[in-house]
């Protein structure tokens, strides 16, 4: 039996679709870990990025923190936490939250910080104060960039939530690590295909949310900015 046939056989085996370690159960576990991690990362990174960006402070701090965190290997952080704190939900959650913080923090900060100064001045001119400027002007204008950061974070978290299974938890990583242990390639490949599909679906869902959440005015401006007529005259 070749590779494709064995993976197909794994997918179509009814045993894999019911019971405590079936595909639907693992999928729900995987989505649960991912949603919890993204929610925690949002709670930490979004207010921090928005406030610092609004105050135009701490650019070096934000970029340094984000780069330092990016340099940390997720697998290393996870295994260290397991040794220090034992097996449980906490180590993979911390590892995933740490992974999701940099893109949300940097994009929220930069989105808010680099809102056109003229727009902010106009808001001040019509009498808006600090928090109102942040909530009613800066955040809506920055929304496409912030949503891009959340999307990148979500994709990384959904991809990396597989490693929760490495330290004994559930999720779609179970298929990969159990398959690895039993030398069952069909199971490993089947699990991998589901994770890959889930990541692509996540990307599409977040693109749709971003489009729907963005104010039509901001969207229109983006479209105008990216296709100025003058560019068509001289092309390389």
């Amino acid at each position: 039996m070749n590779v494709f046939d064995s993976v197909w056989a794994w997918f179509t085996n009814p045993e894999n679709w019911s019971g405590y370690d079936s595909i639907p159960v693992r999928l729900v576990e995987h989505l649960g870990y991912s949603a919890l991690a993204i929610a925690c990362a949002l709670l930490i990174a979004f207010p921090l990025g928005a406030i610092l960006g609004h105050l135009h402070r701490g650019q070096a701090l934000v970029l340094t923190i984000a780069n330092l965190i990016r340099a940390l290997p997720t697998l290393g952080l996870l295994t260290l936490l397991v040794i220090l704190a034992g097996i449980g939900l906490m180590p993979p959650m911390v590892a995933l939250v740490v992974l999701a913080i940099p893109p949300i923090l940097v994009n929220t900060y930069e989105g808010v910080r680099f809102v056109n100064a003229g727009v902010v001045d106009a808001a001040k001119g019509v009498g808006l104060r600090g928090p109102a400027i942040l909530f009613r002007v800066e955040l809506p204008v920055a929304l496409p960039i912030i949503m891009l950061g959340i999307r990148l974070a979500a994709i990384q978290v959904v991809s990396s939530a597989t490693i929760a299974a490495y330290v004994g938890l559930g999720g779609l990583g179970r298929f990969i690590f159990d398959g690895l242990g039993r030398q069952d390639f069909a199971q490993m490949a089947g699990g991998s295909v589901i994770v890959a599909l889930l990541a692509i679906v996540t990307e599409i869902v977040f693109i749709l949310i971003a489009v729907l959440a963005t104010s039509p005015g901001v969207r229109g401006r983006e479209r105008f900015r990216f296709s100025p007529l003058s560019r068509k005259k001289v092309m390389p």
Binding site: S159, T162, I176, F185, M188, S192, V195, A199, E203
Partner: peptide, 18 residues
């Protein structure tokens, strides 16, 4: 490229193994 970028590295490693 963005669809590709979404695919987890572990999944690709596994699928390339054979």
């Amino acid at each position: 490229s963005s669809a590709f970028f979404a695919i987890p590295s572990l999944a690709l490693f596994v699928l390339l193994l054979p």
